[in-house]
Amino acid sequence: MRIGDAKQSYEADEAIWTSSTQKFWFAVFLLVLAVFPFVADAYLLYIGCLVGIAVISTTGLNILTGFTGLISLGQAGFMGVGGYTVAWFSLHTALPFPLTLLLAGLLTAAVGILVGLPSLRVKGLYLAIATLAASVFLHFIFAEWQAVTGGMGGLSLPPAHLFGLTFQSDFEMYFIIVPLAVVMVLAAKNVFRTRTGRAFIAIRDRDISAEILGINLLRYKLMSFALSSFYAGVAGGLFAYFYRVVTPESFPLSLSIFYLAAVIVGGMGNLLGGILGAAFMTLIPEMLNLLTATLTPFYPNAPVFMSPMLGIIFGALIVGFLIFEPNGLGEIWQRVRRFFRLWPFRN
C-alpha cells in the first residue's frame, strides 16, 4: 500500500516508476528473471526464451499498430529479414552477436521504411493489404534468392559468440534474449514519454489535425515503421540464433497474425499489455498441450480428441477476450493495480 506521492521535481513526476512501491516490485521482477534460468527445467527455459523473443517482436508491432494506428501484416516478413541477416553475417563474417543483431535491426528498419512508403496514402485495411503484399514478396525472396538465402533449404548458422564465449544452449541464449527484451521494452517506454511518441499517438488519433499542429506525417509514419521493423529484425535475429536455422517456413504468414493477435489480446497502445499478450499467446498453446498430457492417463484418446480442439480453444479464447475485455490484458492489470492501491484499507 502507498499513501500520497508528492513530487518535488518534474523529473520525478515523469519517471517510469513514480513510487518506491513500483520500484520495489520492478526490482523483484528483475530478480525473478535473473534467478529463473537457474531453477527452471529445460522445458520452462525453452518457453522463457520463446516468450522473450515474442515480447520484443510484439513490442515492435505495438509501436506501429497499437500506438501509430498503422495495421501491419508484415511482421513475419520483417522478422525473416532479421533472421536471414544474422544467418548470413554469422556464416560469412566473424562478427559477434551484438553487431549481427544490430545489423539485422538496421537492415530490417530500412526494409520497413520501404514497405511503409505507401502508408502516407493508404490507411487501415488497405495498408494491411499493402504490408501483406510486402510479406509475400519477402517470402518469395527468402525462397528464391538461392545465393544468399539458401533457397527452400534455408541456412544453418553457428551459435552466437562474443569475446570467445559461445551461446549455444537455451540456458546461454536466455542471457542474451531476456536482458535484450527488458532493455528494448524500456527504450520503447522512453519513446512514449517524449515528443516522438506523442507524435505517433497523435497520428493514430487524428492524423489531419496532427499535421496542422506541426507533425510531418510521412516522417513520423516512416519513423514508426523503421522503429517497429528494427524490433522485428532483432527478434528475427534472436530467433535465428535460438533455432540455429532459418528457412522460408520459419516465418510464415500465420506468424504475422500471431503477433497481431498478441497486440490485440494484450491491448493496443499499451506496452505492458503487449508483454502480457506475447506471453499469453506463447503460453496458451503450451498449456493446452500440458492439459492433453494430464488428460491422457484418464482418457487414452485425449491426444486424438484434443489435437483438433487446440485450434478451436485457442481461437475461442481470443474471441472471448475481444468481447469481454476489448482493451486487453493490460486493462485487467490496471484494474488489479487499482484494487491494491489503498489495500487493505479500501478496495
Partner: peptide, 13 residues
C-alpha cells in the same frame, strides 16, 4: 512539438 528537436535515438535513450 515544432519547437522541440529530440530525434528518435534521443527519445529511445
Amino acid at each position: 512539438h515544432v519547437h522541440m528537436k529530440s530525434g528518435l535515438l534521443a527519445s529511445l535513450a
